[in-house]
Simulated scan of single mutants.
Amino acid sequence: MTLSRRTLMMGLGSTTLLAACANGVGSRGPAMIDARADATLAQLYNEYPGTRSLGAKSAGILIMPLVTEAGLGFGGAYGRGALRVGGATVDYYSVAKASGGLQIGGKQYSHVLFFMTEQALMNFRRSPGFAAGANIEYAIPERGETLAAETTTSLAPVIAVIFGQSGLHVGATLEGVKYTRIIP
């Protein structure tokens, strides 16, 4: 049996997307997501103390404890997390990412979205699926650096902090990210 290149790529893409869905959060429900969100937020605040002030000033925080990303030509990522307002979980969300281009590898990371205005939080919660785009300021801390709200990030309605990366994923891709409310 001979596989065409197209069939092989479709199979690898499907396998990658399915593998990305098994990111360790599991289906044990809200208690597991909340426990992982607590640990992730504690890790962020311990490793990057400047983020505490972002948390204190924010209207809400979306915590994605573990996002798994993999790709070979086509790729994808998936993770689940909790939206907190005033320190209490109010909703659960998934993040799904699709990409295509020259890429190979896999990685896992955590990320936290700080909603710096009530309007940004309201827009996120009311949308059927929030697509990340130009309205988010990304802050990717390097080991040993202090991450704080500078003038460029303090004016952004949403600040994303990506940290705790492991694995290797390289390439040049076009990608899209979507956050969707879920019932775990």
Score class of each variant (00 low, 15 high):
Pro65Ser: 02
Arg126Tyr: 12
His169Gly: 05
Leu18Lys: 02
Gly29Ile: 06
Leu66Asp: 03
Gly167Tyr: 07
Val95Thr: 12
Cys21Phe: 05
Met116Val: 06
Tyr78Arg: 04
Thr2Gln: 08
Gly55Leu: 00
Glu47Phe: 02
Ala20Met: 05
Lys178Ala: 07
Tyr78Pro: 03
Gly106Gln: 03
Leu174Asn: 09
Thr16Trp: 00
Phe163Leu: 14
Ala22Asn: 14
Gly26Tyr: 13
Gly13Val: 03
Tyr138Trp: 01
Arg28Val: 11
Met10Asp: 00
Thr2Trp: 01
Gly164Trp: 09
Ala156Lys: 04
Ile162Arg: 11
Ile140Ser: 13
Thr89Trp: 04
Gly176Phe: 01
Phe114Met: 15
Thr153Leu: 00
Val161Thr: 10
Phe74His: 04
Ala148Asn: 05
Ala31Ser: 06
Asn135Ser: 12
Ile159Leu: 13
Ala120Trp: 03
Tyr138Leu: 08
Ile183Gln: 12
Lys97His: 12
Leu17Gln: 02
Asn46Thr: 15
Ala56Asn: 04
Arg5Cys: 09
Tyr92Ile: 12
Glu145Ile: 08
Ala148Cys: 06
Ala19Tyr: 15
Thr15Asn: 05
Asn135Ala: 11
Leu168His: 05
Arg52Gly: 12
Gly60Ile: 07
Leu147Asn: 14
Arg143Met: 07
Ser53Gln: 14
Leu102Ile: 00
Arg143Ala: 09
Ala134Leu: 08
Leu113Gln: 03
Pro157Gln: 08
Val67Thr: 15
Val67Lys: 14
Ala88Ser: 15
Arg126Met: 14
